[in-house]
Amino acid sequence: MRNYVIRRILQIIPVLLGVSILIFAVMKLIPGDVISGALGVEGSPELRQALTVKYGLDKPYHVQYINWILGVLHGDFGDSLRTSEPIFPEMMRRFSVTAELTILGALISWIIAIPLGILAATHRNKGIDRFVRVFALMGVSIPSFALSILVILFLALVFSYFSPLGYVSFFENPVKNLQIMILPSFVLGITIAGSIMRMTRSSMLEVLQQDFIKTVRAKGASERITIFKHALRNAFIPIITLIGMQIGSLLGGAVIIEQIFSLPGLGQMTLTGINQRDYPVVQGCVLFIAFIYILVNLITDLLYAYIDPRISYN
């Protein structure tokens, strides 16, 4: 087990390296440059030159890359070309928003999806099962931006309700923070609830058909104990894998949701960075998101290995 953990952790190093090279190369290929964007309409060529030197954009690419990576390892992602401020603290502030959105979204999806999935499995082919299957299918099929628009339109027209403005962190003002976050998290949660629901249902069904459950039942255990103590534990293994994988689509979904609900998260920072040709910001954000994503996958894998004794570590 320990060997497996170490090997799995070592495996992410070349991936991270590859990811960083890919991001850097892609950024260099982008047409248009941020200096023009930052200078605006009336800047002079001399100033342009001065800024190019200041941001090291005159150096050869490999030197630019190495400088960037060395900085990143020290928590220095460089300065934004637009604001001249260090990127890392800003990124951390943004990350707290995205993390909250992702976690709330995940929680909401679990609260909705797992009980419904179990119910559907234990009431197979009954009304509730049909409802869950249709609901799940709709959930996977409705894009988050479409759902957001429908929800916003509906609430504004019917309840004259509009998410409060001005993001505040949870620690500053928990009530207002939750008021702001509830709607986007709900939308985000719904969009992934569908697949978790289906996975819960199918893995529960699979487990319920297995011999050991029949044995448990035969021994006279109550239905409740059978389901919660024995079946659920086994059914959770694939669900956890799926949840790990879903964090990725949650992070991706957050990019769009943050845009629609004007939340100052990492996804919005990335899109703004792309729009403004702010190379260091985009580089930093994309690398950071990829890093988080890899980390979540790693944790999922390790958790999976920990829970499922059948897995071999060779």
Partner: peptide
């Protein structure tokens, strides 16, 4: 290692 929509956005940023 990238959320798929992010990677797609990132690639179109280069290709146009």
């Amino acid at each position: 290692a990238f959320p798929s929509i992010l990677l797609a956005i990132f690639i179109t940023a280069v290709l146009g």
